[in-house]
Design a protein around this nucleic acid. Structure first.
Lengths: 138, 138
DNA sequence: TTGGTGATGCAACTCAATTGCATTCATTTT
DNA sequence: AAAATGAATGCAATTGAGTTGCATCACCAA
């Protein structure tokens, strides 16, 4: 429960409670995006609804972003630094591995510019690629 | 209930029942993708489950494709000609209008090639753009 | 007519997401 | 220190989409 973690929350104007610190700590450890159920399994001492609301709060404050990857469940992952108060700039792509069922953020792969018809006003994009991830490919 | 419609189903090896013809007819009229609820509202004389299974069948036979647009509900739209028996080639993008909440297929806008790390094996992609559609922009 | 297969309808269930409300906790005010 | 306030948490219950099981119905073939 380092001072570091607390400061991350405080910087985003989120009250650093015990549960929230645990959730943040867990998020930092992940290589892939997580679901509410993942969180519930890990932090079984906290109520599902509390964890749900924690994720909601984190998202509103720009700490995490949500990803609908085409499966039934919503995934969550830490934002890059540029995100603030729900103004997410997660124009990067997400990669869903059909083998291990994990969803990875690939922040280095920008979504290419689209040739949209002039009469469409683009605000944001979400690109989910599906295939086999590097770990499963080995 | 034209012969045309029947032939579309027969060509895709789908038994042209009354409900299926109505569903196909409805799909052909749409400019945007539809949800099961939309269908239910339109064809209230058919059971929800029947409509659900009709959409499933259509998808398996390559008549329509499903789109997860980031909202809670699955959307359905007619395939281009190239789709067959669930082998969909819908690499085009979808545009979700945040104003009218409609989801449009933009078959002419191909998804650009991505610069994925070598160790990821790409199988398919889904790109949903969000913004204001041409009708709402006026 | 009978038998069989596929299509349809009804009921019920699953599961993630969400809301309401009561309780607890922390911090401030008196 | 006690009371008050607001936020955070926990528990119960609800919603809504998607899905499955099973019985019935429609249609075609023998």
């Amino acid at each position: 429960m380092s001072m570091e973690l607390e400061n991350v929350l405080i910087a985003k104007q989120v009250n650093p409670t015990a549960v929230r610190l645990l959730v943040l700590e867990y998020l930092l450890k992940q290589k892939a995006a997580i679901s509410l159920s993942d969180l519930e399994t890990e932090l079984h001492r906290a109520d599902r609804v509390t964890l749900y609301r924690t994720l909601k709060t984190f998202e509103e404050k720009g700490i995490i972003h949500t990803i609908k990857d085409g499966t039934e469940v919503t995934k969550y992952a830490l934002c890059q630094d540029e995100c603030n108060n729900g103004l997410h700039s997660d124009m990067h792509i997400h990669f869903y591995c059909t083998n291990c069922k994990e969803l990875y953020c690939l922040p280095k792969v920008q979504i290419p510019k689209l040739n949209l018809p002039d009469d469409f006003n683009l605000q944001e994009m979400s690109l989910v690629a599906r295939g086999i991830c590097k770990n499963c490919k080995k």
